[in-house]
Amino acid sequence: MNKRLPSTVFFTRLASVITTLFGISIFVFIVLRVIPGDSITGSLGIETGALTPEQIESLRAYYGIDKSLFGQYFSWMGSFLTGDFGFAYSNGVSVLELTKSALPVTIQLALFGTIFGVILGISVGMFSASKPGSVRDFAGQFFGLLALAVPGFVLATTLVTVMANVFGYFPNGFEYMSPWEDPWMNFQQMMFPSLVLGIAVAAPVMRTTRSALLETVDKDFIRTAHGKGVKHRVVQFKHVLRNSLIPIVTMTGIQFGYLLGGAVITEKIFAMPGMGRQILDAINKREYATVQSSVMIFAIMFVLINLITDIIYRRIDPRIK
């Protein structure tokens, strides 16, 4: 009985994931159909008014919106499950092709932003927690508050304007280069958007780190370690930080998930051809397949991030089974 327990948990979790994803697919599909406009008005704008009823019918057939709602849903779901994700009419390629070029950009951006944010957030959090109530604590908390309060678009626009006007430097004005085409150019193009996203991640990570460390530092085993004469730095990193990692990992996972789906503005300002821009353009053009498939990809990634976070929990704390 005990041996079967993990598989029961696995299947229960799998069923809940599939139900969630199915619910999301239905929700997005309905929301897109409820809002006014369709692929024709999204593509032609006010010129739609110049079309005859026959022309409109012909375009409805072209975009596949002449089918019943069930027909449209199952046709798209079929495309999604078979891996081509539907057709992006305004780009003349399948959504899979679009996603193949946009998703790596967003993942790289989110990854760089998260790494930068975590390093900065944990460092400032540790610095702040090392002497609660002191000037350094105040400085750390002030940084956290500032990073939370300054909107990303303000920081991004300021950075772009200053770098371009003062230093004549704006690598994002060049064509986007993947790390395989030109790693150095890719690094330069990723640097500033990652910095902007990283600062946004650093703030909650810093606050979480600070409170988790302050909670752990009062624990008996820390006093014991100090009493045994273990070096202060070793106690800080090996005992205090390690035992405070659970909330930090949770916060990092959440922030990484947000970055994957929420870097739209940063992608726009830095001209990064990522998923945020893809989904925003598709909403404006009422490209149903692109929006639906992109949202599903985000949802699947969120599920995967949760899974990875769970695995990391187990690695950090063997008591979690």
Binding site: T161, N165, F170, G173, A271
Partner: peptide
């Protein structure tokens, strides 16, 4: 001629100031 998509007008101006477009 390369027509590059820079989806923000402020960034277009910055790219012009930096001489990248």
């Amino acid at each position: 001629i390369t027509i590059r998509v820079i989806p923000n007008e402020a960034s277009i101006l910055s790219a012009m100031n930096a001489g990248t477009i």
